[in-house]
Structure formats: C-alpha cells, structure tokens
Design a binder for these strands. Structure first.
Lengths: 295, 295
DNA sequence: TCCCCTTACGATCGGCGTAATGATA
DNA sequence: TATCATTACGCCGATCGTAAGGGGA
C-alpha cells in the first residue's frame, strides 16, 4: 500500500477515469493501471469497476481511509518544513464565511498596520478546506465557525493535531424569509424547525449535521444544496423561500428580506475558533496573541 | 516518506538503537541506517541524535504524525480484509478493566451458549490498545469505559472510523481509603478533590485527563503512576493511602478498605461504549445486537 | 471503429545485504 | 578496543515508459 498508489487511486476515483488521472498526475495511462493493479493484488480484492470506472464497496472503504491518510502525510511533511524555517513575512488566512466578521477583520487590519511590509492574503472556503490549508502549510491560520453547545469546542474533522481556541461566541439565529409565519417570533426553538425545509450549505453556513447533533434530531431535511461560500447569495435564496439556514445573530441582522430569530432551545451558540499550526510564523503568532484575549 | 521508513523510524525511537530496531524488524543495521538517512534527506532535517539515539525536535514532531499514520494504514488493510471474508467462528473481545462488569460478562456468556462451537477470547488492556486491536482486526469488538457528561460520547483517540454505541451509564464514584476524612460523605463534588493526591492509572481507571476535562480544572495532580490493568491491585494502593482514583459506583462498592463516594457535581457519569468494526463478524454482530437494547 | 484499460517488455532506479570504514566511549 | 552507526558496492526487484493487445459501446 504505497501512498503514491493510494494517491493515484484517489485521483482515478475523482476523475472517474484512468487516463484523466494519469494526465493529472503526470503519469502514463499504463503506470496508473499498474498502481491500481498493485493495490488490488496487495489487498486481494477489486477496488474499481471498469467501464464505467467507479469504486467497488471495498474501494469505497479504502477511500475513507486513503483521503485522511494522505492528508496526514502532507500535514506531517508541512509540519516538519515549518519547524525548519519560519517565514516571517507572510500571513495567509483561511476563513469560513461565517467566521469573517467585523471583529476578525479588524484584528487582521490591526496586524497589518503593525507590520506594514506584511503580505497578507485571505481565502474564504469551507471548514474542511480551511483545515486542510493549515495542515498542509498553504495557510498560516484558519478561522472556522460552527454551532455547538455553549463553551463546547467545535468538532472539526481531521484537525486533531491543530491547536484551537475560541475567538467568539454569539447567539445562533435562524434565517427566515421576512414573510415567513414564524418571522415575527422573538425567539424560536430548534425542535420547532426540524421539520422545515432547509438549505444544505456546508461551505457557507452551519452544516445541517451540526444542527441535528445540537437538537439530537433526525430532521433538518433539505432539497436544495448550496455549494458556494457566499452568505449574501445564500440569504437571497432564503428570502425567496428556497429554505432556511442559520448564522450568528449579529451577522444575520439587516439582511434584506430576511428575519433573523435567535434560537433559545436547546442551548446552542454560534462559535468561531482560530486554528493555528503547532509552529506558527511570527506574524501568525502575533495575530493569535491579538485575538486570544478576545475570548 | 515511505511508510516502511516511518515504521523503522518509530522502531528506532522505541528501541533507542539502530541495531536493536534492525533486529526487531528483520533488517540489517545498514538498512535501518539507510531508512533513517532517506527520511532525513527527504525532510531536509536531522530526525535523530546518535549516541545516544534520541529523536530531535523535528523527530518528536514526526513521531506524533507517524504513529497514527501507521495505525491508520494497518486499519485500512484490516478493514478491507474484513470486508473480503467474514470469519464467523471467532469472537475476540478487547476490554478495558472498568468495562468488564457483570452485565457485559453475562452478555458474553449468553452469546457463547447461543453458539456453543464458538471460540471466544477476551483481552483486558488500556483503551488505546483496545481500539488498536479492533482497528487492526486483532479483536472483533471492544468495550471501553471513561468519564464524560451524561449522554455525551466518549472522546476516544484515533477511533474516528469505528462505530460506537453506549452500553451503560452509571454514577461515577471516587475511591477513597475507608479512613479518609471525606469517606463518610454521602456525595462529593469533583472540584473538592482537584487538589487531592491522585493515582494516574490510564490503563486501569478513568484517565485523569478526563477528570480535568469534566471538572474544567488543571488539578488532579499525581505522584504515582500505575501501569497495570488490575483494578483490585489499584484499590489496594488506594486503601493504603497512595492516592485516589475513580470507578463506576456499582463496581466500586464492597472493595475492602475502600469507601466509594458518588460524584454529583459537575454532572458526570461513568460510561461504557461498545466499539465494533464497520464490518463485524456474524458473531460479533449478534453480540452487538444483544447489547444494543441495554442502552 | 474508436476509446480506454490491460499486458508485455526493456531500461532505469531504488533498496537490500555484505563488507569495509568511521566515530565514540 | 569494542560497539555501533555510516559508507561503498554489487545484486535483485520494483516501477516507469513505450508499444502491442483486448474488449466494450
């Protein structure tokens, strides 16, 4: 089970084609075929069906291991590289949309004025991608948000080795169309909304799985999936009646056509956490110190 | 970063010697040296000091990645192997000492009588080892205990891919010498005990880290570490005044020289969970079904 | 017939062991 | 000087690319 073979396997599944994966990886078709054959011989089971190219049951299972495995391998390499040389003149931030608030923006601006020569960058993406960016060294810090019980840590996938600390906690609010029957309520209970129609926007809003966990419910079904990271676009969909979503209460106020109603039951908050590598760059460490007292 | 090289690296650190690691792995000294050299060239940093052989800072960091990485690699292989052939005639159970209660023992006996030809085995060990056993296929099921807030899941290391469900929850009790000033109390608060002297028995009792997490305290210091898995031996130490420990209340009653006092604050329970592979053997699946309604 | 995966085959590279060398207490 | 890690070197196996083969739409 050579990691390189696993990488090829993942690429083949993603591209649904041996030849496309070969091109993407800079191999010949033949090499890719040999990689897969090597894995299948080693594990003594077929991993892919051909025509069409798709993972078998065993292949699916292997994928579930291979992706985190390869991520961790890249993380290990990046971790050692960071330990070897600390680049001071850079600050690359990965940020989920819900974590980009006036407070965090201000902290970044303050860090910039403190170090004017600093080349700063910010990338807005889903939490998985943000965590991956920090793990692999593509980003120096990540700001990630989610919904949890008060003062509980966020349950972040594959972020095991990353230190995290809370930056802020605000009330969690449901976003409803202003015309919605429940829009006038001062507060709402999550359980009352489990049967509603939701929008699944894993990269832009709180993932529905976190709501289910908070409400200990199987509800929160969805018919529409929103793949972007643009909260405003999401709010337009909500206003049009495509479904509900959640956000931090302060961020959700003043959205046109939207009523934001805080959730009181169960006790749940919108929480933002800052993740940083074990060996942050000096500028990243400064920003960490800037934000830490905000807790 | 060949996994085989990582495996060698871990072995060298564990043996504190190239030659001993070579012998353990069935390589020559030379091959081990080349593995380490390959890693150090690849990562462009020394990973080990020689004479004495010890990990450098970068080596320590690599270790933190390498061990879970290799475990997951073994887990992936075992997972696929289980998918390929289900061995019905075996039931290997890995169990932490605190999870071995009359109820779980009865369930095992019942499963045995239902399938008399069954070769059953049980291994008592720490939770990390129990999880590793299930992940690598050495065991078919694991029973693991710990202390958490009521109805919270156990936070188990590296068990990400293993389904788990609760088998029982009982009050958590402190074990005190019968002569202890607090022994007569009907109940105790965990915070009152943070400053006491504890025994760190990670493989036999609730790890102190879990108590710190439950009490949100930095206390629970220890001077004595107990490396075994024998709860009776641990209770003898407690009775002798070596320090305190915890256990499920029912299990802790009637220990000679011991007073078991339930903890009421913060809300915390002793919880036992059953972990099983995604593809359990038929007998393991039966036992899973037997225990599941016990929830 | 075309597309795409598989197999055959030769060249190259990497990894292992043996054995010589080097360093350290 | 004894012990242990490193280096030199030759052999073997693994992997790559080129190219021929095969099977489904």
């Amino acid at each position: 089970m050579d990691p390189q073979h696993l990488r090829t396997f993942v690429a083949v599944v993603d591209h649904r084609s041996f030849s496309a994966a070969a091109q993407a990886l800079g191999y010949t078709q033949s090499a890719v075929s040999q990689h897969i054959a090597s894995l299948e011989t080693d594990l003594e089971t077929p991993l892919l069906t051909r025509r069409p190219v798709a993972p078998t049951q065993a292949g699916e299972r292997l994928l579930e291991h291979a992706r985190p495995l390869l991520l961790r391998l890249d993380a290990a390499r990046a971790d050692i590289a960071r330990l070897r040389q600390v680049r001071p003149g850079r600050l690359a931030l990965a940020c989920t949309p819900g974590a980009l608030t006036p407070a965090t923006a201000l902290a970044l601006v303050r860090a910039r004025t403190a170090a004017p020569q600093l080349a700063a960058s910010m990338r807005v993406c889903g939490s998985t991608e943000a965590i991956r960016a920090v793990l692999t060294g593509a980003a120096d810090l990540a700001l990630v948000d989610g919904a949890v019980a008060p003062s509980d840590p966020l349950a972040l996938p594959d972020a095991g080795s990353l230190p995290a600390f809370p930056v802020s906690e605000e009330p969690l609010a449901v976003l409803l169309p202003a015309t919605h029957p429940l829009a006038g309520r001062p507060v709402l209970r999550l359980a009352d909304l489990a049967a509603a129609r939701w929008i699944d926007a894993p990269d832009a809003a709180v993932p529905l799985a976190q709501l289910r966990a908070a409400a200990r419910s199987d509800g929160f079904g969805h018919q529409l999936t929103y793949a972007g990271t643009d909260i405003r676009g999401l709010s337009v969909l909500v206003a049009a009646g495509a479904g509900l979503t959640t956000a931090a209460l302060p961020a959700a106020e003043d959205l046109p056509g939207i009523a934001a109603v805080p959730i009181t039951e169960p006790r749940v908050v919108h929480r933002t956490e800052l993740l940083h590598p074990r060996t942050p760059t000096t500028l990243a460490a400064e920003l960490v110190d800037t934000l830490r007292p905000a807790q």
